[in-house]
Amino acid sequence: MIIDTHIHIWDTNKSSYSWLSGAPELLKRTYSIEELDAARKTAGIGAGVFVQADVQMEDSFHMLEVARNTDWIKGVVSWLPLADTGRTATLLEQRLLKDEYFVGVRHLIHDEEDPQWLLQPAAIESLKILAAHNIPYDVVGVLPEHIETILKVAELVPELRMVFDHLNAPPISSGERHGRWGALMQEVAKNKNIYAKISGLGTVAGAEKFTAEALTPYVGFVLEHFGADRCFLGGDWPVSLLASDYVHTWKVYKTVLSSLLSGEMLEQVYAGNAIRFYDLKLD
């Protein structure tokens, strides 16, 4: 069993996806989950989790609806207006906590001008609400400053479980081993409530460097410091298409992981840790 914990879908008729205006042409259309079915079977993916792609609830409601009608999708990481604590609380109480597919929250912090966006008082209060309900938070950071922010978030909301999407953009393209990114990831890994999602590394590295050989030092570094019990995987489709097709993306990840892990530890990274982190129900 392999669980893809990072799948996007978007319907340009249902939400605005303002970031698409500056995105590569390949992404500027609706992507439906039906498009992925054949490739995910070939890749050996048994279950999946949707992750938000817009900063409004229409996107999240769309994902929840599709999840209910797609047997292999087991969860949705939703958006919430974290900067509006009252609305966040209301949406949780009136809608999301009642939905069996709601498993986590994310905000596009990498699109915010201020890398410390999460530290504003209202956002911290919203994160405290998530922690009180044991709802995990996905961190989509791309700068070392985003890691520094999460170190501060962890001090302010110590019970909050978080995961770094795409390993917070390691310096694969430059080949640096492992620089400021490495020092900060090593520091944040000391917090047992913080996990690492091995995902999105094709677009991080660039198509030419998206190889098992190039990725292995960084994935190995993360496994060493976070441990095989706090890492799991995501394909990042369809954004991943900018670097490689879905089947090859998973071939690269499986090659890397199988060179570093085996047995029960490999099974945990493939599925067990994701089930535990997102509290997925696979039956």
Results as ranks from 00 to 15, higher is better:
residue 58 E to A: 10
residue 93 E to T: 08
residue 108 L to V: 07
residue 95 R to F: 10
residue 130 L to H: 00
residue 115 P to Q: 06
residue 57 M to A: 10
residue 123 A to V: 09
residue 180 R to I: 11
residue 115 P to D: 05
residue 175 G to C: 15
residue 165 D to R: 05
residue 84 D to S: 13
residue 77 V to E: 04
residue 82 L to K: 03
residue 163 V to S: 02
residue 112 E to Y: 08
residue 112 E to G: 08
residue 106 R to T: 08
residue 82 L to Q: 02
residue 105 V to I: 11
residue 142 V to G: 06
residue 53 A to S: 15
residue 152 K to C: 06
residue 91 L to W: 11
residue 47 A to C: 07
residue 138 D to I: 13
residue 110 H to K: 11
residue 109 I to D: 01
residue 46 G to Y: 02
residue 182 G to A: 08
residue 106 R to F: 04
residue 89 A to W: 00
residue 145 E to A: 15
residue 104 G to I: 05
residue 75 G to K: 04
residue 155 E to Q: 12
residue 173 S to H: 12
residue 113 E to C: 03
residue 159 E to H: 12
residue 73 I to R: 00
residue 87 R to A: 10
residue 95 R to P: 04
residue 147 I to G: 01
residue 96 L to F: 15
residue 68 R to L: 11
residue 161 R to T: 13
residue 122 A to E: 14
residue 101 Y to T: 03
residue 158 P to W: 09
residue 184 L to F: 12
residue 150 I to P: 00
residue 145 E to C: 07
residue 169 A to H: 13
residue 179 G to Y: 12
residue 179 G to L: 08
residue 79 W to Q: 03
residue 71 D to T: 13
residue 184 L to Y: 04
residue 110 H to V: 12
residue 103 V to Q: 01
residue 171 P to N: 12
residue 137 Y to M: 04
residue 102 F to I: 10
